[in-house]
Structure formats: structure tokens, C-alpha cells
Nucleic acid binder design. Structure first.
Lengths: 143, 143
DNA sequence: TATACAAATGATAATCATTCTCATTTGCAA
DNA sequence: TTGCAAATGAGAATGATTATCATTTGTATA
């Protein structure tokens, strides 16, 4: 159990709601969670944290570098633990399943494309939208 | 002036609001416009079209293949004329300036990455967020 | 260990982009 | 011209997210 130190070193007070949210990301089998999902999962496990707090905490964790925020299609933000290794995403349009991948060739070519145009890169996002074709894919977008 | 035919062939009635929106995209020096921007530009030029209609028309044009919709950071959708050639985007975080680029190597590697994981690709989006470093860049995000 | 106060929380109102509803208007085929 | 389905516009409704503010909680200090 090292979460409190994570929070401390991020300059955040170690409070109950923050520990619960962090712990949820560390134990959930789903790496990618939206604010609403975090809220519902906490409710379901008996820990009730206000929705406003969930949003606040997620944003703070993002700024502290503990979580990463992604804007997939569909309007809502999705968060995942920042494991320090950059990667891109393939999102299944049918079931919402997300898989990560990394291709150094793509990364290199992106940097080059930006540099050639005089830009200084801050960040980038690459999302592939597809069908996962998995047997368990319910073939229906989950809300 | 060939817009009416464009609409016809897209299966859309040639109405005043639709012609105005299409014409705006064809004449505006800014290729990438949000719904709000389209609405305000039309108002400014004396053509007043309801905001709801702007949203409807943009969505119809997207479905008809006349426009492409992009989800950049910031929550709002941005549209551009579909000139048929696929490309990715570099967005300036300071002034909102957008530049397009295309790299066949990136495209190929994306396809490969998805195929290796058993996915059938529908679409993808690659956005690089950066500073444009242009002399005219106001260094401030425009609303 | 009790206290004190800034920081954090939670309920709820507010906001922002977008979509829906429905009465009115308009393009266009007969 | 006329008729009517399709399109429009004003404003209400929605969904995600943020702001407000009174109450609660961590934690540094006495």
C-alpha cells in the first residue's frame, strides 16, 4: 500500500476520496474509465464519493501526472493510470474495448512531420477506431 | 456556382441555409470551423440561420461526405470541407491554427498495428498538439 | 492529544455543446 | 398555382463537466 506517498509526492493531501479513486484504478481490471464509471464503481463498492469530487480528483490526478486523460469519440473523457510508457489506442466501436499499442516508427515520423513545419510538439493523440472482432464482443456500444 | 448539384447528388434538398453553410466553407479562409463559428460568421454576414439548423446541416453534410468532423481537444467538434484526400492534423495550442499533413509510412504502420491485433479499422484520428512558432501567433488560445 | 484553520468535500446550481420538439415556413413536384 | 412532405427556427431538454458555497476533514501546532 503505497498510495499515500504517491499523493504526497504529487503535492496532494492524502484524503479518503482520493485514496479510493486511486485504488480503484489500481485494482480495476478495466484500465480505461470515465468519470461516470468511476463514480458508479465507487457507489457499487459502498464507498460513496460525490460526483463533483470524482471529476475534481480525476483532473488533479491528471495534472499531477498520476492519470492520463483521453478524448475518444463520444464526447466523454476517459482516464487511465499513467504507467510512464507512451502508447496509442485502438478503440472498438462496437463494445468500447480499448487496446494499447506503440510503434516507434510512427512516433519518429510524427516528430519529423511537425519539425518540418516549424512546430514544437507538446503532445499528440492517435486513435484507431475499429471492430475488435473478439468472440465476446457484444456488437453493441456499451453506455 | 455548383453547390446545388453537390447537394442534389448528396440526396439533400437545395435549401437556403444549406447553400449558405456550404458556401461559407468554400469561401472562408479558415478551413476548420466549429458549429458556433459557422453560426456567428453567418450572422455577421447578414445571413441568419438558426443555431439548431447549423448543427443539423453540419451533421447532414458530414453523413453525405461533403464535410469531415474532427474532435480536437476542448470538447467541441470542428468541420472542414472533404477534399477527398486523407490527412492528419497539427493543432497550435496557442492560437488554434491547424495545419494538415500526410505520411504514408504512418498510415501503413497503423493498418499493420491494427491488423496484428485482429481489428478491422473503420477510421482513425491523429492529432499533434504543438506551438506553431509563427510570428503572427498571438500566443493565446482563441475562444 | 486537543485545537485551529486551510484545504477538501458534497449537494446542487450553473455552464457548454449539442440534440430534440413542434409550430411555422419553404422547396418542388404535379 | 397548389399541396404537402421536408426543412427550419425558437426555445426547451439533455449529457458531460465545472462552479458555488456551506460543511467536513486532514494535519500542523500548541
Amino acid at each position: 500500500m503505497h498510495e499515500p506517498e504517491h499523493l504526497k509526492s504529487a503535492g496532494l493531501k492524502s484524503t479518503l476520496p482520493r485514496l479510493k479513486v486511486l485504488s480503484l484504478f489500481e485494482t480495476s481490471k478495466e484500465r480505461h474509465l470515465s468519470a461516470e464509471e468511476v463514480f458508479k464503481l465507487l457507489l457499487a463498492s459502498g464507498d460513496d464519493v460525490g460526483l463533483a469530487t470524482v471529476y475534481r480528483v480525476l483532473t488533479q490526478f491528471e495534472q499531477a501526472g498520476l492519470l492520463m486523460r483521453h478524448h475518444f469519440e463520444g464526447g466523454k473523457s476517459v482516464f487511465e493510470l499513467n504507467h510512464g510508457v507512451h502508447h496509442d489506442h485502438i478503440v472498438c466501436l462496437q463494445c468500447g474495448h480499448v487496446e494499447e499499442f506503440y510503434d516507434s516508427g510512427i512516433e519518429a515520423r510524427q516528430k519529423k512531420a511537425a519539425a518540418e513545419r516549424g512546430f514544437t510538439v507538446h503532445d499528440h493523440s492517435l486513435h484507431i477506431y475499429a471492430d475488435c472482432n473478439k468472440p465476446k464482443c457484444p456488437n453493441k456500444i456499451k453506455s
